[in-house]
Design a protein around this nucleic acid. Structure first.
Lengths: 180, 180
DNA sequence: GGTTGCATGTAAATGGTTACATGATTGT
DNA sequence: ACAATCATGTAACCATTTACATGCAACC
């Protein structure tokens, strides 16, 4: 799925601007499952206009740059549904953190521990934050995805907490044998 | 982390070829957390040679194309450790499936159900497969990551199974109101 | 006889990020 | 004063994917 479908989807939830679309990818549920930067959003919106899948109106704002609010057209809504009905591409995860764990034995124990603890903290913070904002998920899948996110992060948190000793002891072992 | 570090890491686990590196990303734990195709692996290996971080030897094979087995040099090992000591980039997930769930109300119920059930099945198969091959994870982080993967997939599986009715009922709701 | 697996590599095309350009306002 | 937020957009750059090129062996 390219930036065009992503934008189309966001527009389908209501009139928005490129700037606000970017924000959607930074925070909230969407931020965890997709990403797009200005450099891909603005050209995508332009293309949607060209193809008649969206329309714009410019809203002047006193003391602020004018906003361009995009809306999806009926044709755009059809194009969105068409795209969504395609079988979804396989999920792709890219985790530098997990890759590093594969090389645990190359780390000094304290470094590995710091990294793992940092991740555990980060997960804890994410979970707390998500649990605290269970409002405004009136919209269809939003609430569902919110719960999904919490479930996954909790599982990751629990696993790291319960098994971190395994990987830390391996690093220790390497250090001990290196000292010999 | 770019393809160079990825390859360097794989070489650090023992002499390999570009072809075998590709396979590592297709199957096994690595396949779930990183990806690289031939088009990025071969050039990366070439660069590693240029920079003196790896060496090659060609192994002729009767009735098979000759293999180029790459090894990491001491300099390469240092470069790998340097790279791994950098703070890891944030994980990035790209999930078309989860994105689609955000637009559950645009799906006919049976279509949504098919998609969700397909995902549940897929997760079930992955879990079964991972549980069945708990061998050869002698290497440092491999066993740890294997368990991590199972934990995450189980959480996803359980959540979908327990909450699918929520999202399906929403789609149903949309259909009912459309029929009115 | 066709597909899959083994095995390497290149080139074109894609797609996206990063950085730049601009500029006012609000908060520290 | 300085950074951050709001707001749009372009262009250069980067990396990766996809497709192509080649060819033999084993399996169905």
């Amino acid at each position: 799925m390219d930036a065009k479908v992503l934008c189309l989807g966001l527009l389908a939830r209501g009139e928005t601007s490129g700037y606000e679309i970017r924000k959607s990818f930074e925070e909230g549920v969407l931020g965890h499952i997709q990403d797009a930067s200005f450099g891909s959003i603005y050209p995508a919106l332009g293309k949607l206009l060209d193809e008649g899948l969206a329309t714009v109106r410019t809203v002047e704002q006193p003391g602020r740059p004018p906003k361009k609010l995009y809306s999806v057209t009926p044709k755009g809504r059809i194009a969105l549904v068409d795209a969504l009905m395609q079988p979804p591409e396989a999920d792709r995860l890219r985790s530098d953190f997990l890759f590093r764990l594969l090389f645990a034995e190359l780390f000094p124990t304290h470094r590995l521990e710091t990294m793992v603890e940092a991740r555990i903290d980060e997960l804890g913070r994410k979970i707390a934050e998500m649990e605290s904002c269970q409002e405004d998920h009136v919209a269809a899948g939003e609430h569902f995805l919110h719960g999904y996110g919490i479930a996954i992060y909790r599982a990751a948190h629990a696993y790291l907490e319960e098994h971190k000793h395994e990987i830390l002891s391996q690093s220790l072992l390497a250090e001990r044998s290196a000292a010999e």
